[in-house]
Design a protein around this nucleic acid. Structure first.
Length: 473
RNA sequence: CGGGAAGUAGCACAAUUUGGUAGUGCACAUGGUUUGGGACCAUGAGGUUGCAGGUUCAAAUCCUGUCUUCCCGACCA
C-alpha cells in the first residue's frame, strides 16, 4: 500500500504536512495571501472541536459574546506592554471609502482592549463579578510567512476573557481553563501534552503569567496548542476598571484570558497522520466509520442499509462510498481521509454472513460476524483512540532527553529534534544563550514533578526550576 | 523581512535553451464493460501561459516591474 500523491513523512516532513492538508481536502489556498480556505471536511473537524469546547466553557459558567473586529489606535495604546507586543503584526485600516480616517483603526489581533473598554462600563459592584465571557471569532495578525492551520494571517479561534474579585479566583480560573484544554487535547485529540508556565521572555504581551499546552509533533518539534493567561490587575488599572466591594470600598478586579485556534488541527495532523494520509482520533473524527460496498449490488446494499440503521441507533457517525469507483480506489480514499474504521462489504463476506473491518491506525483487517459488528466497532473506536494516544506519548517520551551538560543540547539539532528537560537558573541571559547557540526556545516550566537535580545547564549556577527546551513551529 | 525555488487546463508537468498553430498524463462529462488495494474502451469538454508594461512582423518563450505559493531563517497562536 502506498500513496504517490503524498510526500513521505520521513523524507520531507514539511511537504508531507501540506500534502496531507490538500489531499485530504482540509484546506485550499485563496487569492488572499495567508488566509486559508477551510474546506467542508476540515471545517467539520473544527466544528467538532468547537462543540466540545463550547459545551465545556458553558458548563463552567461562561457566556458567548461578539465584540467589534476593529480597534481604534488610541484604544490599543492604553496598555503599554500589550501594544508593544502586537504593533509589529497588526493590520491597519486607514481609509473609509475614498477618505482617509482621522484615526487609524486596527483589525483586532486579540480583543483584550475591547473587552476591557466594555468591562469598564458594565462593572460597578462586586455583584457584577465574576464576568465570564468568551467569543468565537477570527483575528488578524500580519504574519510574514504562512502555512495552513499553523500560521495564517487570519486566525479562527476562541478567546475567553474573565474578571474576578480576587487574585485567588482569577488564578484558579487561569488554571481551570488550562485544564479544560489539557483534558480536551488528551481525551478528544489523543494528544499527550506538556502543561506548564511560560518564562517571562515568552509570556503574552501584557500578562503577569502565561500558561501553555505544548505538544510534540512527529518530527520532534514543539507546537503551542493553547494558552491561558493570568493578567493580575495590569489591564484593569490601565483601563481604570473598578468596583465597590461589600464594604463600599473601591477595588480593582483581577483578570484572565485564554484561547485556542484551528492550529490544533495542524497539531492533530502532525501527531497522528502517516504516509497514507490523515489519521483522526475517533473522538474528533467527523465520520467515525466509512462503509464501502465492493459492488453496488442489491444483496450488498441491503447489508449497507441494515448497518446504517444500527449505526444511527448508536449515534455513530458514518459515510458511505457508493460511487462506482473501483474497490481499491475507495480503500485508498478512506485512508487519505483518515476515517478511523472502514467496513468493507463484498460477496466473500456475505457468503459467511460477515463484514470486513479495517482500523486506520494499524491497518489491521478482521472479518466479523454481521451481528457482532456493532459491539466490535464500539470496542475498536476506544482501542484506536487509546492506541493513538499511547503511540504519540511513546514517541514524545523517546524524544525527550534529561540533559545536564550544555554541549548535550546539540543532540536536539538532529532531524528528529525533541525536547530537552533541564535545570535552569531562571535568568533570561541563559535562556537567550541557548536560543542563540542552538535555536532552541524554552517551552514551559512544568507545574508539577518539578524537582531540581543539578545546577543550571547553561551557567552552572544554582538552578531554581526544571524547564523544557525545544524547537518550535 | 533576509536567503533559495517555482508560477502554462482543476492537479502534475512538457514546449522556454534557439521567439513562429499551446501539448501529455491524471481528474472531469457522456455511453458501455467493470469493481476484494488507486479498472478499461470510446467520445467530449476544458487555456487571454499569474498580472502589468516593454522589445519584435510575431512573445508561454527575451527584458523590466509586480503578485502569489513552497522551502530555510527571523517573528508569532
Amino acid at each position: 500500500m502506498n500513496n504517490d500523491k503524498i510526500t513521505k513523512r520521513d523524507v520531507d516532513f514539511a511537504k508531507w504536512y501540506t500534502d496531507i492538508c490538500k489531499v485530504a481536502d482540509l484546506v485550499d489556498y485563496s487569492s488572499m495571501k495567508g488566509s486559508m480556505i477551510i474546506r467542508p471536511y476540515g471545517y467539520a473537524i473544527w466544528e467538532n472541536m468547537v462543540s466540545v469546547l463550547d459545551k465545556k466553557f458553558k458548563e463552567l459558567g461562561h457566556m458567548n459574546v461578539q465584540m467589534p473586529m476593529f480597534i481604534p489606535e488610541s484604544l490599543l495604546q492604553v496598555e503599554k506592554n500589550h501594544v508593544n507586543g502586537f504593533v509589529p503584526e497588526v493590520a491597519w485600516v486607514t481609509h473609509g471609502g475614498e477618505n482617509e480616517l482621522e484615526e487609524r483603526i486596527c483589525v483586532r489581533p486579540t480583543s483584550e482592549v475591547l473587552f476591557c473598554d466594555h468591562f469598564k462600563k458594565i462593572i460597578s459592584s462586586y455583584r457584577d463579578l465574576p464576568i465570564l465571557y468568551n467569543q468565537w471569532c477570527t483575528i488578524v495578525r500580519w504574519e510574514k510567512t504562512t502555512r495552513p492551520f499553523l500560521r495564517s494571517r487570519e486566525i479562527l479561534w476562541q478567546e475567553g476573557h474573565t474578571m474576578h474579585e480576587t487574585e485567588e479566583e482569577a488564578r484558579e480560573e487561569t488554571l481551570r481553563m488550562l485544564k479544560v484544554y489539557e483534558d480536551f487535547q488528551r481525551e478528544y485529540l489523543a494528544m499527550p501534552v506538556l502543561v506548564g508556565k511560560k518564562t517571562d521572555k515568552e509570556k503574552f504581551a501584557g500578562a503577569e503569567e502565561t500558561y501553555t499546552i505544548e505538544a510534540m509533533m512527529y518530527n520532534g518539534v514543539a507546537l503551542q496548542n493553547a494558552t491561558s493567561h493570568y493578567f493580575g490587575q495590569g489591564f484593569a488599572k490601565a483601563f481604570d476598571i473598578k468596583y465597590l466591594d461589600k464594604n463600599n470600598e473601591l477595588k480593582t478586579p483581577y483578570q484572565t484570558s485564554w484561547g485556542c485556534t484551528t492550529r490544533m488541527i495542524g497539531g492533530l495532523i502532525m501527531t497522528h497522520s502517516d504516509d497514507l494520509g490523515l489519521v483522526l482520533p475517533p473522538m474528533i473524527a467527523p465520520y467515525k466509520i466509512s462503509i464501502i460496498p465492493i459492488k453496488l449490488e442489491d444483496d450488498i446494499l441491503d447489508v449497507v442499509n441494515e448497518l446504517k440503521k444500527k449505526l444511527d441507533k448508536e449515534n455513530i457517525t458514518y459515510i458511505v462510498d457508493d460511487s462506482n469507483k473501483s474497490a481499491g480506489y475507495k480503500f485508498a480514499n478512506a485512508e487519505v481521509k483518515g476515517y478511523p474504521i472502514r467496513i468493507e462489504i463484498g460477496k466473500k463476506d456475505l457468503q459467511d454472513k460477515k463484514v470486513t473491518l479495517v482500523r486506520r491506525d494499524t491497518l489491521e483487517k478482521m472479518q466479523i460476524d454481521i451481528n457482532d459488528c456493532i459491539n466490535m466497532i464500539k470496542k475498536l473506536l476506544i482501542d484506536i483512540q487509546n492506541n493513538l494516544y499511547n503511540r504519540a506519548l511513546k514517541r514524545r517520551e523517546s524524544l525527550t532527553y534529561n540533559l545536564y551538560k550544555y554541549d548535550e543540547l546539540k543532540s536536539l539539532l538532529t532531524a528528529d529534534g525533541g525536547f530537552a528537560y533541564v535545570n535552569w537558573c531562571g535568568n533570561v541571559e541563559c535562556e537567550n544563550k541557548i536560543k542563540d547557540d542552538f535555536g532552541l526556545k524554552s517551552r514551559c516550566i512544568p507545574l508539577d514533578d518539578n524537582k531540581v537535580d543539578g545546577p543550571c545547564i547553561c551557567c552552572n549556577k544554582k538552578a531554581t526550576t526544571k524547564i523544557y527546551f525545544g524547537k518550535q513551529y
